[in-house]
Structure formats: structure tokens, C-alpha cells
Design a protein around this nucleic acid. Structure first.
Lengths: 348, 348
DNA sequence: TTGTATGCGTTATCAT
DNA sequence: ATGATAACGCATACAA
């Protein structure tokens, strides 16, 4: 490997002092064009690259933003993350794009049992944190103590107030979904989600559902509310339950695509036709929503944009020292595909 | 934020020298149990965390491994990555698990146009590199010059020799897939992939396909070889072509699940029944393979393990300084789901 | 405009 | 067994 040169080598080669090189590098204006030229020539020739660790030590800023995501000890990403965030890559991509513009890099939360998140953050002197997923409350308290720019994605719990937040407008999205079914002429519309009490996201989406029904003066029917895991398997369960109990349903609003796909698969595997026998609408617009047959009608949120906005919140706090916490909401939109259709007279 | 203490503060508090603290921290044996105790007491009290940037500067090792993945300038992950590597998270997860065990962290390739990969690697003084995806040849040359432990995943091209490599046994996987269809009694078996000439992966898989057919003394029929993009849309195209040309087919071996799902969707959207009208087998075992209806029969590779092995290759070179390049191959296995069935007399 | 000197938090060498 | 001290590469306050 070509030996790494330091700022000192560049200085010598250019016949100037280390300070001048530093000035040139950082665009400090107090340097003549001529020496600037000399310095950059030397930099070229030596293929000099600044050592960011040294810079970090000296400046106190690591230019590193940490991304925390749930990884289990066995090396598996928890199913929760994968199933609720199959757009993990998109989010990261949005983050990375914006951060790199400001010369920040993304550090992934390599966790092992010997070390806590806040230890990790402290050791690496991270300039900012992005939390993907839901964690035990203590994690948030720990991180809060660090007092570092932090953004949470899709969390509404009370502790979220201490951080920047980015979410979709869950209530509106769910309203849109329900409205779509209503507009198609459906009356008996179910709602499938995780336990509504335990998650604010589910609650918001439930509210959107209720709001739409209320507009049509349709009573909420407790029997059409299905609470289980927000996973593919949860979707299977809901479908099984509906079929077993012979619950009459025109349409079903599901809080996540992955769960909706579970519902759809169970129906299809049992000989039912979607959307003829049941109109299903999801939430998220994961990639698979367009791959399944029929394509899944759903509520789309721009995840790349979500990542970009998160990055911008971090940058903004970093550059301006403005510490007030912001909450950004992204407006979702309806994507109509094949899993919903007009109300027919047939019943399932 | 609680002020960050340094090793000096710890030393003062414990009434010893910085050197002793360093010894205690790094488990250097030349320290008495008593002072060790004192030191750790001080560390506790101050909530001291070592500054990894300083350590890196002093030791010359960053304890950072870079992951490079294709991210476009607009912030989108290239479709190629997403569609061929929907298991990105799993891979990362395997990586992260092993690396964290050795106190390495993962740095994501925040790229912007002002800086090249090798610049980035040099600035951050990365200890190792993982390359996910296929890149222009010049990238490999650049990285090779850096002479840093590097592992490539799923690349066979000639330049791969200069790096550690991890792949599935593509030929065997494809052989397994074809064998499965053969065992089901199918004779007219097609093969769908990207252009075989341009990608060694496709070539390997094609060889596996041919090998299985040869065992059964079945002639390769040029008309049953479909070359197009290894994407969902490519799958759509293949299916459209088959249907339009009324190509007689019992089964179809597809080089990627995502493509197989495209084929399946096109058939289904046009009223055909899978597997009755056509047995389809994919490759990869992405999560969607089990979500679609019917479930997709496919060839599974343990992606988490792949990530773990990659990490181990890096660690090994780092710890032993052994520079000879290793190539690890993972044996895939057949996963039978609903998209394949016994040969019937009906034709499509 | 340019240079000197110091500090950032570690590790490592060399004394003691 | 412990301590002083010199790097490591850079930024920066202060001098010139």
C-alpha cells in the first residue's frame, strides 16, 4: 500500500507550513492564490488524503451519524424490522444521500452484548443519531441524556417529544384507504391492525378509519376490528378468523402491506378471488405490493424522502445549534392496484 | 451534555498515570490488581468512555469496515441492488454481528460526486471493505491499489481473484432446481436469466441447468432459453413472450426469485394457474417467495451466514496479516413450496 | 499572508 | 509495577 502522507508531508513538498495546508484544505481565505496552487499541486502529487480521525480529534466533531436498527444477537434482523420496514434500504439511501452532501458518513449500530447503545455513541463521538424501529423506553432515556441530535421515525409515544420526529400522516393515510373502499360502494369494511391500545401508530390509523366511516354515517362494528400481529403471519390469522367465523365483509383496511399480503394469500390459498370476494387495501407501498397478483392497492409514503428529511433535521440542528425539536409529517397518497374493486352483490 | 472525560481525568482521579489507565483498559498485564481496581472505580464514577478517534489516530487502526452498495445520486438505491439483493438487511445483519464481536463498526458508503470510493476509504482509514453489487471494473482496480482486506459477494469476474470472495454454489443450486423439475416428471424445461454471456453468475446457473438435463439425456432446446433482465419486469417479459409465441413448457427454471415472481404474476394476471399450467422455480429465497400465492419453490442460500462469513474473512486477514485470498462457497438448498407440481397431461 | 506552537485523547517507548 | 513523554495528524489561536 502506498504509504499514507500527512499534512506535514504536503507542507514540506509545497514548501509551506502545515497551517497553510490546513487553510487551503478548509477554504480559509487568508492564503494567496499562488501558495494555494502550490499546495494543491503537492496534494495531487502525493495523493494526500486527510485523516478524518485526526480531524475529528482536533475539531471535536466526528462527522459521523449513527443508525440504530434492531439486530438480534443471533445475527438475525428481527422480523419486526424486516416486515415493517422492508424499505430499510430506501430510508438509508435517502439519509446517505443528504448526509454525504455535508460530508457526514453513516455508521451502523454494530451492537454486541458488552456494550450499550449510549456507550457506542459516546465512544465514536457520533454527531447525530437516527433510530429506526421501536425500543424499550430505557433506550430513549439513555440517548436523551447524551443530548445529541436525534431523529425518530414513526414513533408517537410520549418520549418522542424529546427528539426530532418524522412520520407519515397515519390518520390521513388510513382515512384515504377507508375512503377509497367507501367510494367503491363498500359498506361492511373491516380494520386489521396490531393491538390498538399498545401502539399509537395503530391508534392513529384506527382514527382515520373511524373518521371515514363516520362521514358516511356508518356505525363502527366491533366485530370487524381485528387486532393481532402486524406481520405476514398476523394477516394469515386474520383471514383464517374471518373465514372461520364466516364474517361478512366487503372490504378490509389493513395497517401494513405485509399483513395485507398475508390476508390475501390465505384467501387465495383457500380458493377465494381477490378482489371479487374481498377488497383489500394495505399501507406502506412496499415493493411487493406491486409484485403480487393482483397488485395490492395501498397507501404510499415516500420513504427515500423520509430518509432525506431525517438527515436534514440532523444537519440543521448540527449547523445551527438550534435545539428545538421538530416533527415532520409526510402526506401519503393512495395507490390503486388490483386488490380493490367495486361492490358487487356477491358475498363471501 | 455531561462533559466528556478523557483518560487524563481518569488518571488524576485514580491517582495514577495515563499509561496505567491505558494498561488497565487494554488488559495489559503489567499492573497490580489494586491499581486496576482504583482505575476502574474512577472510570465508573466519571462514566468515562474512550475516544475511538484518538485511539484510531494513535494506533493506526480505525476499527471500521466499510460497506459499499450502489446508491444513485438522486438518493434512490439502484433497482439492481434492491431487486437482486432484497436480503441486504440480512447480509448486513450477519456482517454486523460478527464484526461487533471484534469491536469493529460498519460504515456505509456515503457517496457523493465530489469524492471517489477510494478517497473515502483512505480518509476514514478503513480497516476493511465489503462490496455488495457489481461495479465498473475501474472501481475494483482503485480499491485493489489500496491494499486493504476486501471481500466481494457473488462476483466471478477475473478481477475477483484479487479479493476475498463469498458466493453460493450457483451451478449446484441451478442443478438442484432443474433436478427438482425433472424429478416431478417434467421434460420441456425452460431457463430464464440475464444474458448468459455477460454475467458469470448466469453462466454458472446455466451450466447447472444443462448438467441436470444432460443426466436425463434431454437435449438443450434453444427456444426454451430466455435471456432478458434479471428483474421483476424481465419476468413479465419472459412470460409475455412464452404466451405470445405459444411456447410449450412444463417447467421453468428462473435465475432469481424476483424474476420468477414476475413470470408468475404475468401468468396469473392472464388467467393461468400456477403450478398447474406451469411449474416455476426461482433462486434466492427472498422473503416474498413465501408470501406469494402459491408460495414460490426456490433455491435458498443462507444470507445471514454469507454476511457472517464475509466478516470472518476480513477479521482473519486483519488479525493474522495473512494476505492470501480466499474464496468461500455456500451450498444452497431446495425449498419446495407451491409453484411446482407433478407433470400432468394438460398443456398450457 | 504565512508560520509557530499547542492541544485533542490515545498508545507505546523508555525510564524508573 | 508504574510513570513521563513522545508520537499520531490535524485545527487553530496567536505571532510575525
Amino acid at each position: 500500500m502506498a504509504k499514507k502522507y500527512s499534512i506535514k508531508d504536503v507542507a514540506e513538498r509545497a514548501g509551506v507550513s502545515k497551517a497553510s495546508v490546513s487553510y487551503a484544505l478548509n477554504g480559509v481565505k487568508k492564503i494567496s492564490e499562488k501558495t494555494r496552487q502550490k499546495i494543491f499541486k503537492a496534494i495531487e502529487e502525493l495523493e494526500y488524503e486527510p485523516n478524518l480521525a485526526a480531524r475529528s480529534l482536533s475539531s471535536g466533531k466526528s462527522k459521523l451519524v449513527g443508525v440504530i436498527l434492531p439486530i438480534t444477537e443471533t445475527g438475525d434482523v428481527t422480523s419486526d424490522l424486516l416486515e415493517k420496514n422492508p424499505f430499510f434500504s430506501e430510508f438509508i439511501s435517502g439519509l446517505s444521500y443528504v448526509l454525504s452532501q455535508y460530508d457526514y458518513d453513516l455508521l451502523l449500530s454494530g451492537m454486541n452484548s458488552n456494550i450499550t447503545y449510549s456507550n457506542w455513541i459516546a465512544r465514536r463521538r457520533l454527531d447525530g443519531i437516527i433510530l429506526l424501529g421501536i425500543y424499550p423506553k430505557t433506550i430513549y432515556e439513555e440517548i436523551k441524556k447524551l443530548n445529541i441530535p436525534t431523529v425518530l421515525s414513526d414513533v408517537y409515544e410520549e418520549y418522542a417529544q424529546d427528539f426530532h420526529c418524522v412520520h407519515v400522516d397515519d390518520e390521513y393515510g388510513s382515512y384515504l384507504a377507508t375512503r377509497h373502499l367507501l367510494d367503491l360502494g363498500h359498506k361492511r369494511i373491516g380494520f386489521a391492525s396490531g393491538t390498538i391500545k399498545s401502539s399509537k401508530v395503530n391508534l392513529k390509523r384506527f382514527n382515520g378509519y373511524k373518521k371515514a366511516l363516520r362521514e358516511e354515517k356508518i356505525e363502527i362494528d366491533e366485530n370487524l376490528i381485528f387486532e393481532t400481529n402486524v406481520t405476514f403471519e398476523g394477516g394469515l390469522d386474520v383471514a383464517e378468523y374471518i373465514l372461520e367465523k364466516k364474517i361478512q365483509l366487503d372490504g378490509l383496511v389493513v395497517v401494513a402491506d405485509i399483513m395485507a399480503i398475508g390476508v390475501m394469500k390465505y384467501f387465495q390459498d383457500n380458493g377465494y378471488i381477490i378482489p371479487n370476494d374481498l377488497s383489500i387495501i394495505g399501507f406502506d407501498d412496499i415493493r411487493y405490493a406491486r409484485y403480487c397478483s393482483p397488485g395490492l392497492t395501498t397507501i404510499n409514503q415516500d420513504v427515500v424522502k423520509k430518509g432525506m428529511l431525517s438527515a436534514e433535521l440532523i444537519i440543521k440542528e448540527l449547523e445551527t445549534k438550534e435545539t428545538s425539536k421538530e416533527s415532520i409529517v409526510i402526506t401519503p397518497k393512495l395507490i390503486v392496484r388490483g386488490s380493490t374493486t367495486n361492490k358487487k352483490e356477491e358475498k363471501i
